[in-house]
C-alpha cells in the first residue's frame, strides 16, 4: 500500500468524489419528478398521456445507458446543441433513470387497493387531492424500497459519465492509475467512496421506512386483508 501516492492524489480523488455526489444528486433530483409524472401518465385514462409515457419508459429502458450518454455527448452537438460534459452526462442519465424510476413508482401506485380509488371517486374528492391525501401515503411505503435500490444502481451508473469526459470519482481513479500504475490502491479507494454514498442511501431507506411505519402503521396490509 503506497499511502504516499494516495495522499498525493487525494485532492483530485476527493474532487472526483464530490462530482460523483453532485451528479448523483442532480440526476436523482431531476429524474424523480419526471418519473412521478411519467408514472401518473401511464395510469391515466387519457390515451394521449398514456401512450407517449409508455413508449418513453419502454424505449429508454431497452437501450444501453452508455448509448444514451454517447448520444447526449457526441450526437447532440451535430444538431447544434452543445452541452458541457457534465450537462450531457446529466441529461443522458436523467433520461435513462427517469424511465426506470417511473416503473418503480408506477408499481407502488398500482399496489394501492383499487377500492381506495373507488371510495375517493364516489365521495367526489378531486384527483390531485386524492393523490396527495390517499394514494401517495399508501404508495410511498410500497415504492420506497425499490426506489432506493434503483437510486443505488443509478449512483453506480454515474461511473459511465467518466466515459464522456466527466471528471468523476471513476475518472479520477483511472487517471491516477494510468499515471502511477498502482491499480490496487486507487480502485480500493474509489470502491470505498462509492460504498459510503450507497451506505448513506441504505441508511436513509431504513430511516424513512421506520418513520413511515410509525406514522401510518402497517399501511400495506390495508382493509382488504380483513375483508376477504
Amino acid at each position: 500500500m503506497r499511502t504516499d501516492l494516495l495522499a498525493e492524489y487525494w485532492p483530485t480523488i476527493w474532487n472526483g468524489f464530490l462530482i460523483t455526489v453532485l451528479l448523483s444528486f442532480v440526476v436523482l433530483a431531476v429524474s424523480t419528478p419526471i418519473a412521478f409524472f411519467l408514472a401518473l401518465a401511464r395510469q391515466s385514462q387519457l390515451a394521449v398521456l398514456r401512450w407517449p409515457a409508455g413508449i418513453y419508459v419502454n424505449v429508454f429502458r431497452a437501450l444501453p445507458v452508455l448509448i444514451i450518454l454517447y448520444f447526449a455527448f457526441y450526437a447532440l452537438p451535430q444538431f447544434g446543441m452543445s452541452l458541457t460534459a457534465f450537462q450531457a452526462a446529466t441529461a443522458g442519465l436523467v433520461i435513462a433513470s427517469s424511465a426506470y424510476l417511473a416503473e418503480d413508482i408506477r408499481a407502488g401506485l398500482a399496489a394501492v387497493d383499487p377500492g381506495q380509488r373507488h371510495a375517493a371517486t364516489a365521495l367526489g374528492i378531486p384527483y390531485w387531492r386524492s393523490l396527495r391525501r390517499i394514494y401517495l401515503p399508501q404508495a410511498i411505503p410500497i415504492a420506497l424500497p425499490p426506489y432506493i435500490t434503483r437510486a443505488i444502481i443509478i449512483v453506480k451508473g454515474t461511473a459511465l459519465a467518466s466515459l464522456v469526459a466527466v471528471n468523476d470519482l471513476t475518472a479520477e481513479a483511472v487517471r491516477a492509475i494510468s499515471i502511477t500504475y498502482r491499480p490496487y490502491e486507487f480502485l480500493a479507494v474509489a470502491a470505498i467512496l462509492y460504498l459510503v454514498i450507497n451506505a448513506l442511501l441504505a441508511a436513509l431507506q431504513s430511516f424513512t421506512e421506520r418513520h413511515i411505519a410509525l406514522r401510518y402503521g402497517r399501511v400495506a396490509a390495508g382493509p382488504a386483508a380483513v375483508a376477504q
Partner: peptide, 29 residues
C-alpha cells in the same frame, strides 16, 4: 364530482382509508 357528492356509496370491502383514523375517514370528503 358535484353529482357524486350527492350520491353516497358503501362497498362490500369497506374501502376505508387505512392511514386515517375513523374520524379522519369521515371528515376528509
Amino acid at each position: 364530482r358535484r353529482s357524486r357528492a350527492d350520491i353516497g356509496m358503501v362497498f362490500q370491502s369497506f374501502n376505508l382509508f387505512p392511514h386515517f383514523t375513523a374520524l379522519q375517514n369521515v371528515i376528509e370528503a
